[in-house]
């Protein structure tokens, strides 16, 4: 920031270059500053107050944060987000890439398969959640189907078991989101020059090695875009949980975004909700800032 403004004062012509474009982007800049930045600062400031139903500026220091980190429900939420986040990152990438690699083998009816895999993405999380709630319901869904086929002792009811409920949510999320990841990966694969494959074949490198050591490193930008999309999906996980379990059984599938909503609007305790959302922002910042520094800082140097 300081270096660019320094440049501007030394060479004023820089500031007026592409003047029209700069004027045109003023509304968006203002929106970003007022709405996003302003809203964020406002939320952080009020997280240090004891605001209840309505915001009020009565500061109580770190009280809200102390209460937050001693609330068992918040700790469960963080743990769930952690498990869900890591697994959904790994499985989305692996399954998405494998599907894309398979579609890339110049198979027949590629368009049909692509559509089928991408189709769940057209559904909202709420619809996805309700559908999977039915599929995983022990009385009508998979368990019922297998039991009525003769395997009487078969048990598969992830949404009713506290230990594994988060995996039930993960299944639905993967079903919904992997199609998009596959498409992104497929686009990345199509961007690899055909000559690379020919050269690898001439050198007698097996296909899996070509993928692992040549193609994937070349797809780095695609992977980074994908990573950002998946990561943002993880942090805002909310509607899927509400539709599938509404946090149950017994609060075992609570997630941070739901904690924020519940305390802001159900419990009429804005301060607590703001403290929780500030913690969410902080966790995103811890991941995104070093990455952005490496990614964009590195490019400038190079």
């Amino acid at each position: 920031m300081s270096s660019s403004s320094g440049t501007a004062t030394r060479r004023p012509s820089q500031m007026f270059r592409n003047l029209n474009a700069k004027i045109a982007s003023i509304p968006m800049i203002l929106t970003a500053l007022c709405v996003f930045l302003g809203g964020t600062v406002w939320t952080i400031v009020y997280s240090f107050t004891n605001s209840k139903l309505l915001p009020r500026l009565k500061f109580v220091g770190l009280d809200q944060y102390e209460r937050l980190w001693s609330a068992p429900r918040w700790l469960t939420s963080i743990e769930n987000l952690f498990v869900y986040g890591i697994l959904s990152l790994i499985f989305s990438l692996v399954i998405g890439f494998l599907l894309a690699a398979m579609l890339d083998q110049k198979i027949r009816f590629e368009g049909v398969f692509r559509t089928i895999f991408l189709y769940p993405f057209a559904l909202s999380f709420v619809v996805t959640g309700l559908t999977w709630q039915w599929i995983l319901n022990p009385d009508f869904g998979v368990q019922h189907l297998v039991r009525s086929a003769g395997w009487e002792s078969f048990t598969f009811n992830p949404l009713y078991d506290q230990q594994i409920v988060i995996y039930g949510i993960l299944i639905a999320a993967l079903w919904q989101g992997t199609g998009l990841i596959m498409c992104l990966m497929l686009a990345g694969l199509r961007g690899i020059d055909e000559d690379i494959w020919k050269a690898a074949r001439v050198d007698g490198i097996p296909m899996w090695k070509t993928y692992l050591f040549i193609v994937i490193p070349m797809m780095r930008p695609v992977f980074i875009t994908t990573l950002v999309i998946i990561a943002s999906g993880i942090v805002r996980l909310y509607d899927l949980v509400v539709a599938q379990t509404s946090g149950g059984p017994g609060g075992a599938s609570e997630v941070p975004a739901k904690y924020v909503y519940d305390y802001m609007f159900l419990a009429q305790n804005l301060g607590q909700g703001f403290a929780a959302s500030t913690m969410m922002l902080l966790s995103v910042a811890i991941i995104v800032v070093p990455w952005a520094y490496l990614e964009f800082g590195g490019r400038k140097r190079g």
Binding site: P72, R73, Y263, L266, A267
Partner: peptide, 11 residues
């Protein structure tokens, strides 16, 4: 308050 009730609900 609703806040207390909500905490009791969670418990």
């Amino acid at each position: 308050t609703e806040d207390t009730n909500n905490q009791l609900n969670d418990l």
